[in-house]
Structure formats: C-alpha cells, structure tokens
C-alpha cells in the first residue's frame, strides 16, 4: 500500500513539475532580465575575501539543469566548458528555445530528453532535427521564404519529428507555409495532439483559415482549438473570403473530440461571424465557444453581434457561447 502511494505521489509530482515547467516557460521571457545585477555586484564584493570557494557543486544535477533552463540555449551550451561535470548537463535541460534568425548557422538537434521545444526562425535545407519522441509541448514560428514549395516540404518534415506532441502553438505564417505543401505525401498525423493554438493575423492572407483547417485534419484527437487573432494593417476583414465559402469537409476532430474553441481578438466582422457559424455547425461535441472581443473603438454595436452569434445553429446541444470584453489588441 505504502509503496503504491509513494509511486502515485512520484507520478503526481512529475506531472506537477511538467505543468510548472510549462508555466515557467510562459513566464520566462518576462522577468529574467530584471533581477540579479546585484548578485553580480555582491560577487565582486565577495571574491576578495573568499577567493575560489566552490559555491555551486553541492547542488545535484537536477537543480543545475533547472538553473540552466532559465538561460538562453547559447549561454546554456557554453557552460559545457566549465568542467567535466557540466559538460553533459545542458543537453539534459528539458526545455529548448531556439531562435534561428538567419541562415548563418546550421543546426543539428539530437536531444531525446527534450520535452519543450520552441523554435522560431528560418529553416535551412541542411538543418537536422532527429525525432523528438518526448516533446509534449511545442511552439513553432517558422519564417517565410521565397522558394515556397520546397520550403513547405521541409517544414512538414520538421513538424513530423514532433510525433508525440500534446500541446502545440503555431504562428499563422507557419500554417500558411504548410498549406503550400498540402500535397506532400508524408504529412504527419499528430495522434496525441489535444491542444492547438494559432497566433497571428488570420485574415491577412486569403487562405490562412484554409491552412488552419488543413492542420485540424492532421490532429484527429484535438480537444481544444485556440485562435489568437492579432489585427494587422491591410487585413482583408471587410471583404468576403473565398476560402470560407467552400463547403466544409469536416475534420475528424471537429465531429468527435473538439470540446473547446477560443477566438481571441474578435472584431465583429462578417467573415469572423461566418467562421464562428461554421465551427458551431461542424463541432458536434463542443462545450464552450469563447469569444474574446477586441476593443477597437469601431465596435459600438456590440449587442447586435452578441445576438447574432447566439442565434447560430449549434450541432452540439451542450455548447455554450461565452463572451469576454476585456481584450485590448
């Protein structure tokens, strides 16, 4: 009994740590800059009195990697030269945030321990990403490129390495690139993906919604779809969108698994209304459709579209539409 309890506790603890790491990943960029110049100063004060005293080695590897998880990948890798104990540590950090702003470097990633993978930037033809079977959470923001068709295939292959991902965030641009390779034969299916988020301007390009739907088709078990629309100047918000008019061949997840849909940055435009209408019609087990309204001054006639949305046909009888007015784009 006792042993069983300990095992359960250990499992719960691991799960808690996993969640905490996600939370930390979210908060990471905000606060790391602010503190700690003072500890450096204290260090100077201290070095004279107490030279060469080892102040770190009493920590176990798990805590050293925890410290490394707050560093950029560059700083983290450079600690491998401190001493032989430090040499392998950086590769054990379960979190990797890789920003590849140019084609200056070629990367090869072989880190099976990785659980959280955040990639932003350009993908080179020679970049190598080994399978990442333990990655459960990923953020992918691929940069655009001119020779789009080959590039799209490359991006699909890249995504395919995240075969067991559970929660994923993609930039709309990434989805659009993938859309160009929609006839790629080996499109991966994300069997475990339960939460998918898209960030960016979904109405800037005609086919962005088409791209989102294409990805929904690759995620048969998706439960939560989150669209975070950010308004871009020149978005085609006021014109009808041909990609919304085509009949909706319903992705598998829509009819069987999707329970939550969030749309953040709702402006009350015709095409947005149409999108919500189609989702409500297609999603048969949807429980919550949450719409967070973008507070641009244009939206004076709020009650009208509240009402309009509430009138839409819902395929799921248990579906609630929730409004939130507090979003400032």
């Amino acid at each position: 009994m006792k042993r069983q309890r300990i095992e359960t506790e250990a499992r719960e603890r691991r799960e808690r740590q996993r969640i905490e790491r996600v939370e930390r990943a979210e908060g990471r960029n905000v606060s790391s800059e602010t503190c700690l110049s003072s500890v450096r100063q204290n260090a100077h004060a201290q070095t004279n009195a107490d030279d060469n005293k080892d102040i770190i080695s009493s920590l176990p590897d798990s805590l050293l990697t925890h410290i490394l998880s707050f560093l950029s990948i560059r700083d983290s890798v450079s600690t491998s030269i401190l001493s032989s104990r430090w040499r392998p540590l950086w590769a054990l950090v379960p979190f990797l945030n890789l920003n590849q702003p140019s084609s200056k470097y070629i990367f090869k990633i072989h880190t099976p321990a990785l659980e959280y993978f955040h990639f932003s930037g350009y993908l080179n033809g020679d970049d190598v990403l080994e399978n990442l079977p333990n990655v459960v959470e990923s953020v992918i923001q691929i940069e655009d490129c001119d020779s789009i068709n080959d590039y799209a295939k490359r991006v699909w292959d890249f995504m395919g390495k995240l075969c067991n991902v559970i929660s994923m965030e993609l930039s709309i641009v990434t989805a659009q690139i993938l859309c160009h390779g929609s006839n790629h034969e080996d499109r991966p299916t994300f069997h475990y993906l339960s939460s998918l988020k898209f960030c960016g301007s979904i109405w800037f390009e005609w086919y962005a919604w088409h791209a989102v739907r294409l990805l929904l088709c690759q995620a048969p078990k998706l439960q939560k779809l989150n669209i975070e629309h950010s308004f871009l100047l020149g978005s085609n918000l006021n014109k009808p969108n041909p990609f919304l008019e085509e009949p909706l061949d319903v992705p598998e997840c829509m009819s069987s698994h999707l329970t939550t849909c969030l749309y953040r940055g709702f402006g009350g435009y015709e095409i947005e209304m149409e999108l919500v209408r189609q989702i409500l019609r297609a999603a048969r087990v949807l429980q919550t459709m949450k719409i967070t309204i973008c507070s641009i001054p244009k939206l004076k006639n709020r009650p009208r579209f509240h009402k309009g949305l509430s009138k839409f046909h819902r395929s799921s009888q248990n579906c609630q539409i929730v409004f939130d007015n507090g979003y400032f784009a």
Partner: peptide, 19 residues
C-alpha cells in the same frame, strides 16, 4: 543564478562559481 552568469565568459563563470 542564471542571470548572474548570463552572457558571461567561461572564465568569469568559473570564477563566480569557484570552479
């Protein structure tokens, strides 16, 4: 600890940690 060694040379970090 991480921000104390952020963007620092290996020599600096060794000295800071006493390694």
């Amino acid at each position: 600890v991480a921000s104390a060694i952020q963007n620092k040379s290996v020599e600096y970090v060794r000295k800071f940690f006493g390694l």
